[in-house]
Write a protein that binds this DNA or RNA. Structure first.
Lengths: 122, 122
DNA sequence: GCCACAGATCGACAAATGTCGATCCGGTGG
DNA sequence: CCACCGGATCGACATTTGTCGATCTGTGGC
């Protein structure tokens, strides 16, 4: 029903939505997917894990290239993505750049994920 | 330290690991990243959400193309990815293919994610 | 001032990913 | 049997993504 794929603009103004519960809005889906994309990479998961295992939950780049077996530019690239997504913070100490876990970031993401996608049997 | 990026095979046999806690093993990271990748896409998040909002937590493809505004082949493609990742099941009923949520899948993923990456302050 | 080193950025490149139209498959109903 | 409809698969294509070597930036020591 509803034809196949009209995508005509005439239905843009839907006064009353016949759908029972509205799904994830497109912009929310994009935002959530962006954060998930930051985690959906083996190297980045391992980077987070290595940092979490370090004392003080922080590490500099030179401590990270060897465990993940990647070049320094590649590690820097992944770290930037994790910082931009809010999972890490960066602060310089002397010549080194230290990356530290943002404490509740992963927890909060998984909570949002559950409420946005799964049961929500309200 | 440890030089820059040797990647020589001589250290493959590490009898005693000097690292305090071992990070995510590479294969585990790949497996977890694969499941996260399946969710890290706006269209797929919305598909899951639309299915979750349907009565009986299941829907056929014809009910899904319109909410996500994508062509039928693209929707089928995304659904296959979600099935392969274990978030949906597919079963035919007459001419239609019904996709249903796997109840605890997202919950379990977020639990694994937390324990694998985040605090684990043990 | 200059050199050495940690790290970021750039440019290039291969591989993976999202999207669609066209086509193929498989039930339903005439 | 044939037409039709829901859905899967295929082939093509543009975009994104991961990776690296080369280079730039910036900090500290001499």
């Amino acid at each position: 029903m509803v034809s196949l794929l009209p995508i005509d603009e005439s239905e843009a103004a839907d006064v009353c939505t016949p759908v029972a519960k509205e799904a994830l809005p497109a912009d929310e889906a994009v935002a959530l997917a962006a954060r998930l994309k930051a985690l959906a990479e083996p190297a980045r998961l391992r980077l987070l894990s290595v940092i979490a295992a370090h004392e003080g939950r922080e590490a500099c780049v030179c401590d990270l290239t060897e465990p993940v077996r990647l070049s320094q530019p590649t590690v820097s690239h992944h770290l930037k993505i994790l910082v931009d997504a809010g999972f890490l913070t960066r602060h310089r100490r002397g010549a080194w750049a230290f990356y530290a876990l943002v404490p509740g970031a992963v927890d909060e993401l998984s909570a949002v994920l559950r409420t946005a996608v799964d049961v929500r049997s309200g």
